[in-house]
Structure formats: C-alpha cells, structure tokens
Design a protein around this nucleic acid. Sequence first.
DNA 1: TACACCAGGTGTACGTTGTACACGGTTCTA
DNA 2: TAGAACCGTGTACAACGTACACCTGGTGTA
Lengths: 249, 249
Amino acid sequence: MKSDRDRSIRLLWEPPAEATRGPKAALSQARVVEAAIKVADAEGVDALTMRRVAETLGNTAMSLYRHVPGKSELLDLMVDAVWAETEHTPKGPWRAGLEFFARQMWAMYRAHPWMLQLTTSRRMPGPHAMTRQDAAYAVVSELGLASEEIVAVVTAVAQFVDGVGRTMADRVQAERETGVSEEDWWNGREALWQHFTPDRLPMMTHLWNSGGFERPLDEFEFGLARLLDGLAVFIEAEERPLVRRETCL
Amino acid sequence: MKSDRDRSIRLLWEPPAEATRGPKAALSQARVVEAAIKVADAEGVDALTMRRVAETLGNTAMSLYRHVPGKSELLDLMVDAVWAETEHTPKGPWRAGLEFFARQMWAMYRAHPWMLQLTTSRRMPGPHAMTRQDAAYAVVSELGLASEEIVAVVTAVAQFVDGVGRTMADRVQAERETGVSEEDWWNGREALWQHFTPDRLPMMTHLWNSGGFERPLDEFEFGLARLLDGLAVFIEAEERPLVRRETCL
DNA sequence: TACACCAGGTGTACGTTGTACACGGTTCTA
DNA sequence: TAGAACCGTGTACAACGTACACCTGGTGTA
C-alpha cells in the first residue's frame, strides 16, 4: 500500500535504472508506454488492454510486467509522456499566457482524448505535467494576487479545459463505439424527438425550431473567452472577496 | 444496434408496462434502480456490479435482467432518477437563475458523486435531465440572445459544474479506495516533495512556502463567480462575436 | 575460464466481471 | 382446466488484470 505509492513516484520521477546483467531486452519501459499510447490513440481507451499492447509489440501480455509494475502505473506513465510532448512555456501578459496554456492543453486533449477518460482518481502527478502547471502559475504570478488566488485562477482554467475536453472525448468514443456521428445520431432519433413536445420541453423545441442546435457555437472558444473575461474582472477589481473551501471534499 | 437505442429511449421515456400474468414480482424496475443508487452512494462506482445490486435485494444477479435490459441501461435509469430528485424550476433574473441552476447541479453531484464517473459517452438523455435543462434555457431566454447563444450560455454553466464535480468525485473515490484523505496524502509524500525543487518547479515551491495550497479557495464558488462575471460581460455587450464550431468533434 | 547470478520473456491459471441460455415454478386468460 | 406469459435461478463462457513457476541467455566475479 505505502510502498506502492512511493514506488509509483519513483517510477515517474526517476529514470528507470538499466540492467547490466541478463539478456538484451527487446522491450523497454519507453517502448511499452509508446505502444500503449498508440493503441489508445488508434483504438480508444477500451481497447487498451495489456494483451493488446503486448500484441502490437509482438510479445505476450506478461512480458510487459518486466518493464511496468501494472496497468495503473502504465496509465500514469502514458499521461506524463503526453504532457511531455509539448513543452513550451507560455509567455506574455497574463491573459495571453493563460490563453496559450489553455490552447496547448486543448490541443493535447484533442490529440489524445483518452487522457480524460482514464479514471483520474489520485492519478500520480508526473514531472512533465507539473512543469507545465508551474509555467502556468508563473504567468499570473506578477499580478499582485495572493498565493491562493494564483492557484485558484490557474485551477479554473485547467478545469475548464478538462471539462470541455471530457465532453469532446466522450463524443469521440461514442462515435467510435457506435460508428454513428453525433449529428446523425441526434437526427436519426425520431423515437427520441417524438417525446420532445412543446408542452413538455417548451424551450428546447423552440430552440430546435429556431436552429439553436444546428450550428452550435464552439464550446471551447466561447467558454474560454467568457472565463478569461470573468478572470479579468476579478484581477482588475479593487477588492477581491475570498471564499475558502469549507467542506472537506 | 438500432433497436438497441430505440429500446433505451422507450425505457427512459415511457413508463414500464406492468405484467398481468405470471407470479407477483418481488422486484421491479424502480426497486432495482433504487437499490443500485444506494450501492453506488454507499460503496462507490466500482462496487456497482450486477451481483452486488442483486445481493442487496436478496436475489441473484440474473434476476435483475427481468427488469432492466443490461447494466448500461441501468446506469441510464439511475442517472435520470437522480435528476428527478430535485425538480425545482429556477426563477429570477438571468444571473440568479443560472446560479440557482448551478447550485442545484452541484448539490446533486455532491450527493451522488458517481454520476460523473460513469462513462458518459452517448449516455441516453432522460426526461428529467431534459426538463431541468429546458428550465435553464428558459432563464436566459428573455435576454435577446440568439438561439445558439442561449445554448452556449447554458452549456458553459453546465459544463463548469460537471468539471468541478468530476474532480470532486475523483477525490471522493480516491479517499474511499486508499482510506487516506486528500490532505494527508499530499502531506505524507516526502518521496514526492523531494522532487519539487526550486530549480525544477520554482513557482510551485514558492506557492507552497507561502501557503497557497494550505487553504485553497473554494473551486466551485470561485469558478462560478468568474464564469457568471464573464457571461455578464458577454450578455451586456453591444456586439457579440460568434465563433461557430468548425471542427467536427 | 567456470559458474553463479539475475534479468527478459512465456505459459498456465485464478478470481471477477457482464450476460446468454435453459429450466422450473407461478398466476392469469381462454 | 390447458396453455400462455412471466418471474427468478443455476450454470457457463469470454475477457480482463495479474500471480506464479519456469526456461533462457548474458554478465560479473571466482
């Protein structure tokens, strides 16, 4: 239990020691992680099984366990490897910097939607993810905000991108599973629309009839602009009320 | 495949027909759903297996299949049942109304964190969830916004609550799994903190030393206030640029 | 140079999951 | 009263992560 976590930390933060004895390794931790990422990219998170990853490498499932303690740790390594892919430091004034940070996260999630579908409960923080987060803090560090406020601002942006990304990722997966695009799916559901009567759902039918769902606004662009506007109001305010977390969770 | 979806829709939108023949049913769809919700509330989403639900009802796993087509559909029913628990219509001017909407969702997610952990990919929309969404649209329908804008505003709020809720839900699950609270966990990780050196993560160490992580701001309250501020800027603006979605997903 | 050691990879096996299928008992309808 | 419709059970299977025992091949030390 305890050593479990410590081992995961070492796994992520310390480079794997290379063996001097034994046969030359065909596999390596990096190769396993790389193969797993490829599988997840191409076939989705459901196809990400140890057997499938091993198969793409031409080995058996158990061979992976020589290079990775278990599936959970493999997921940790995959996530941090993706965070490492784009290691640019946002620059500029706070708003441009946060926007850059958000767009980079967004691009990352679009390239690897499975990242948001892994159970994130107590996922181990890796060095590359932390580095990116550190850079984001730096962007808002010169505004005279209190420490808690700096953390809150960056958290808000990151959480926003996570939220939009997750619905995007779910859509991707749904399309892969069913083979039906989002639009076709909604259109094809007469069985569903017949229940959307004006007396039951007046606004939804009205919005539907006036085309509100046909050409939706870009959720990422819309939400990001609103959020940054709201943060601007906060940052430029004379007084900032602080609401601390009271409940435990 | 096709009938699969149509059947799910009927399942959610049409009340289950009651049988006239056969022995009196000890179980019912409502009882199964209720029991499943109790299991998820008490033991988390991982414990939500067909066998476990049946056990709490004093039956075998297969008995559930008389009342529910499968696990996926059971999840759909659980989610909509929770949406039905609080069926109040938000009132007031747009800002108060949206805030009410957000707080109701937040309360719902706090009571049933598992809702956000279910794979939401193409989860079937149920009548109660739709009714609540319709009410939210109504709140912002009198502001002279275009249809797409109304949809975007409500989506932004709902997505925000989803995002904050999901991280909350992950924390709850992690504490259940490991038996260690979030705070204890971070504090106990010398193995982790030893890697947080000022040269590697200058901002994080600085924020840590100045207490930025000790008493974090309430993520829900902070984010909601910022988002509503940003939406106010948008709603009260003379001109509103529209960025439509261009990419497919 | 001999050999003990150790790491890489394989094959087998187990417990857990959702659920297909066949069966036996129960109650209303024709 | 015969039969149809329905309820719940028991058994079984495929897929999953992974523990374990086992060979194999290369290197450091004797």
